[in-house]
Nucleic acid binder design. Structure first.
Length: 251
DNA sequence: CTGGGGATGGGGCCC
DNA sequence: CGGGCCCCATCCCCA
């Protein structure tokens, strides 16, 4: 269950990539991540250079342009639920534009927002309103240049795009990571540092999540239980293995 | 086959 | 808005 509820849609909801295919030491030249992608979307090697520890802003979105334009990429707003609208037209801008070009419109408050029906006496007033309020709420489509994912915020998109650009490179082995703390965790595999200790057996771990998983082994009551035989497991993956191996075969 | 450790990915939250 | 950290999930490997 991906925790990607910020992601609007997954074109390919398949499982994660086979990590064994990612064991490529030549991350600088041919990032393994892109092997299945068209060349045209592969970032330039310089963004993956060892010096490129800092985030590289090679991301793009379908459009971050100011409100002055009404790019087609925002057309997804037209697919939003307009059931509450009395108008047969589905596009907010379509609703607004006739008012903007009304040759007879000289009366005050003639520029109306198609979404919230607020009216403004000037076009700039309406634009400001849309920019600050309505558009900010409806422009929830930030598309990744490298894949099909879309995000509700620019920050979420930038975060995601780092998984493509992999700007954090290990100086020891050259492996690239999307975020500094991922790299830090990886560096521990080189240094042998294990800052997370088990209070029960003093066993140490390099990763907090692995310590957490380990702590389950000390627990009498395991977290994950088979619905059929009530057997419990310390990890969901073990439960899945158990289910796939035949416990639930009769069902 | 099972259980557990190691390693890693990715989105959310907080500052 | 970005960085750091948290948490969850998953895969691989080995005993």
């Amino acid at each position: 269950m991906p925790r990607s509820f910020l992601v609007k849609k997954h074109i390919n909801s398949a499982k994660k990539p086979n990590y064994s295919e990612l064991e490529c030491p030549t991350v600088f030249i041919t990032p393994h991540f892109y092997r299945g992608l068209p060349l045209s979307v592969i970032p330039q090697p310089e963004v993956l250079s060892p010096a490129a520890y800092s985030p590289v802003t090679v991301w793009t979105t379908t459009d971050f342009s100011p409100i002055s334009g009404y790019p087609s990429s925002l057309s997804d707003t037209s697919s939003k639920d307009h059931s509450g609208s009395e108008s047969p037209r589905s596009d907010e801008d379509e609703q607004m534009l006739p008012k903007l070009t009304d040759p007879h419109g000289v009366e005050a408050e003639k520029f109306q927002c198609g979404l919230c029906s607020k009216s403004y006496s000037t076009y700039s007033g309406l634009l400001k309103h849309k920019q600050l309020h309505c558009d900010a709420q409806t422009r929830k489509s930030f598309s990744c240049k490298y894949c099909e994912k879309e995000y509700v915020s620019l920050g979420a998109l930038k975060m995601h795009i780092r998984t493509h650009t992999l700007p954090c490179v290990c100086k020891i082995c050259g492996k690239a990571f999307s975020r500094p703390w991922l790299l830090q965790g990886h560096i521990r595999t080189h240094t042998g540092e294990k800052p997370f200790s088990c209070p029960h057996c003093n066993r140490a771990f390099a990763d907090r999540s692995n310590l957490r998983a380990h702590l389950q082994t000390h627990s009498d009551v395991k977290k994950y239980q088979c619905k059929n035989c009530s057997k419990t497991f310390s990890r969901m993956s073990l439960l899945h293995k158990h289910e796939e191996s035949g416990c639930c075969v009769a069902h």
